[in-house]
Design a protein around this nucleic acid. Structure first.
Length: 400
DNA sequence: GTTGAGCGTT
């Protein structure tokens, strides 16, 4: 896929980077006033020591509220996906926990201090994964959505629930492919994804008679390649439009978990979600001070929302999980309603024809369980890094 | 034998 949208100027890259440092500072200030959460007191909350993989002198990376921002790590070590450190007791390498959204490296249970960390580079782990067939098979066993799978085999890092979430986001997962043509064969299916990257596993689900069920799964060799797949809004496999997404795990709940968050803009801030995979961004046409950001997983959404607010270019944006709205809302008519919103809703029939296809809303919209297949909004007057990354084709005339 | 939102007999 082409990564050059003609509208975008390359210098947005610089613009994207410089505010990050401010963001960190501002966020740090803000979080000082917030709860210290469950983060342990560390002896040296300022910096952690990271060994340069090229063998140079160690580099100290600043922490942020007890954790290290992935952006900070990657700024010093391009291509880094994580950190590891040697466990003095066992001599084995321990990976540092990564926030489910991939935004933060979380402090080890016994803190950052007294450790020298080594950088995990994407290309290394990719190669390891590609060569290790054992990993591929064990990976196949891992279900994404079900949190009840008790794989306590290596859950010796304390908080096991969080660790599993980490693994889900730091490693590729089986992506579900919906809408596969019934006559599409496995070879064709696989070949399609190999155009995008290395396929570790793929499968079209079939009935006992061998006929296709119309969906399948694919696992890419790296999160990078996986993100590449996820960033493509509509896939064309064997002449048919298909959706590829992270499985929701509705087998547990009966309903899909929500991966969309409701973003309230403090001013005219742009959405900036750092390294999380954004599936969709919707900003209402007349700017109303909020937006929806759909992430590739509910975990990522929850993780980002758990910050309470995000500082974007120095401006604070409020976050919440997008509330599904049933037709018969259990709340009172004015509950949490943005001022003046309801009236507008009743008047704006034509616009609502589009908006009502939102699966989630801050409240007023009717809840329609539907994805964005045919109703993707073109981003309006955005110039955040997201534009370039998640609307890579710049093709507004795609026929869905 | 058809169909077209969905969530995987590994």
């Amino acid at each position: 896929m082409a990564d050059n949208s003609p509208r975008d100027e390359p210098k947005t890259e610089d613009d994207a980077k410089s505010p990050l440092d401010e963001v960190k500072d501002i966020r740090k200030e803000a979080e000082l006033t917030q709860t210290g959460s469950a983060v342990k007191q560390v002896a040296d909350p300022e910096f952690i020591t990271v060994q340069d993989p090229t063998g140079e002198e160690p580099i100290e990376l600043p922490t942020d509220d007890g954790s290290v921002l992935m952006t900070t790590l990657q700024a010093s070590f391009p291509g880094a996906t994580g950190l590891k450190y040697k466990n003095p007791k066992t001599g084995a390498n321990r990976a540092v926990q990564v926030d489910p959204s991939g935004l933060r490296l979380l402090a080890p249970a016994d803190g950052w201090e007294d450790k020298t960390f080594n950088v995990i580079i994407a290309s290394q782990s990719e190669r390891v994964r590609a060569l290790s067939s054992a990993d591929a098979t064990s990976a196949k066993r891992r279900k994404v959505g079900s949190s009840d799978d008790s794989d306590s085999d290596d859950g010796r890092d304390g908080r096991s629930g969080r660790k599993r979430a980490v693994e889900r986001d730091s490693q590729p997962v089986d992506l579900i492919v919906l809408g596969v043509d019934f006559k599409t064969g496995d070879e064709c299916f696989q070949k399609y994804f190999e155009e995008i990257g290395t396929v570790v596993f793929c499968e079209i689900k079939r009935k006992s008679d061998g006929s296709s069920k119309g969906f399948g799964f694919v696992r890419m060799a790296s999160v990078g390649e996986q993100n590449k797949v996820l960033a493509i809004p509509q896939h064309m496999i064997d002449g048919r439009r298909c959706d590829v997404k992270v499985p929701d795990g509705r087998d547990k709940q009966g309903r899909p978990s929500i991966s969309r968050i409701f973003v309230v803009f403090g001013d005219e801030a742009k959405v900036y979600v750092e390294t999380a995979v954004v599936t969709d961004v919707f900003i209402p046409k007349p700017f109303r001070g909020f937006a929806f950001v759909t992430l590739s997983s509910a975990e990522a959404a929850e993780s980002i929302v758990s910050k309470g607010s995000l500082t974007v270019n120095g401006l604070s944006v409020g976050l919440s999980i997008a509330q599904p709205r049933e037709e018969n809302q259990p709340f009172g008519p004015d509950y949490g309603l943005p001022a003046g919103y309801r009236n507008r809703r009743d008047r704006e029939r034509p616009e609502r024809r589009i908006n009502q296809n939102e699966s989630h809303s801050p409240l007023p919209m009717p809840f329609v369980r539907q994805d964005f297949g045919g109703y993707r909004q073109q981003p309006q007057q955005q110039n955040s890094p997201l534009d370039r990354r998640y609307w890579p084709t710049g093709d507004s005339n795609r026929q869905w």
